[in-house]
Design a protein around this nucleic acid. Structure first.
Ligand SMILES: [Mn+2]
Ligand SMILES: [Mn+2]
Ligand SMILES: [Zn+2]
Ligand SMILES: [Zn+2]
Lengths: 139, 139
DNA sequence: CTAAACTTTGCAATCGCATTGCATCCTTAT
DNA sequence: ATAAGGATGCAATGCGATTGCAAAGTTTAG
């Protein structure tokens, strides 16, 4: 757990408590997006609701973004430092049907996506599902 | 309830029971995708689980497709006659944040969408959210 | 035609994830 | 030191999805 985790929280105006530092640490170490359950699994000692509220706080302050990958459980991933969750920050996500991991496709921006002109667009959610690199190699 | 609803069910190898004909009728009359709750609201007399299983049956036989619009409740919409739910049949959906309706954007095909080449794509879910035509006019 | 076999339906129950209420503990500001 | 506000823990609830099981309906073999 690096010391700059605290700075990250402060930069988002989030009071750095022990729990929040731990959760941020987990999120930053994870390759894939985490559900509340995933997170709970990483700490033996933490209350589920506290973790839930931690994620909510992070989300409100745009430290993380939520991903609806259709599995029933919301996933969360760290936003990049520059991210404001504005339309130009949106990107696609990939969900592996085998290992159940969900990844940010940070380079797959959604801002330039064509949209129907009779609707007023506020958000776009693009989830691609299939086999991730790992799972498509292993047979 | 037209007589050809029965033929539609038969063409998908679904045994046409009274309940199924009624559900198909509701689905075909609806402009927007329906959740189980929506459907339940349209029938005073029907059991929730029967409706649930009816939708499952329809889905299995590709009469309807499911839409995960991020509202927590799955929505279902009739497939077009030619639809096989194969990749080339996939289309985007629009969810109105005001009236909560979810629509099929049947002309917005997803088959030619560019996808990351290190993943093996099986499905794509594109949900655009904002204000529908109606709701953006009314102010 | 009838009995067995299979399918559909209804009702009760359960599950998983999200969310809230409230009391307690901590931290910060007066 | 104390009051105020925020964070945490625990219990409870909400809600949508799903299952088990028995009753009712339908199809098929004999
Ligand atoms: Mn992401
Ligand atoms: Mn559709
Ligand atoms: Zn995988
Ligand atoms: Zn609308």
């Amino acid at each position: 757990m690096q010391d700059n985790l605290e700075e990250i929280l402060l930069s988002r105006k989030i009071h750095p408590t022990a729990m929040r530092l731990l959760v941020l640490d987990e999120l930053s170490k994870s390759e894939s997006a985490l559900s509340l359950n995933d997170l709970e699994g990483h700490f033996e000692r933490a209350d589920r609701v506290t973790l839930y509220r931690t994620l909510k706080t992070f989300e409100k302050h745009k430290l993380v973004h939520r991903i609806e990958d259709g599995t029933g459980a919301l996933k969360y991933a760290l936003c990049e430092a520059s991210c404001d969750c504005a339309p130009q920050d949106l990107h696609a996500h990939f969900h592996c049907n085998k290992c159940q991991s969900t990844f940010c496709l940070k380079d797959y921006h959604l801002s330039q996506m064509k949209t129907p002109n009779n609707f007023q667009v506020e958000e776009i959610s693009l989830v691609i599902k299939g086999l991730c690199e790992q799972c498509s190699h292993v047979n």
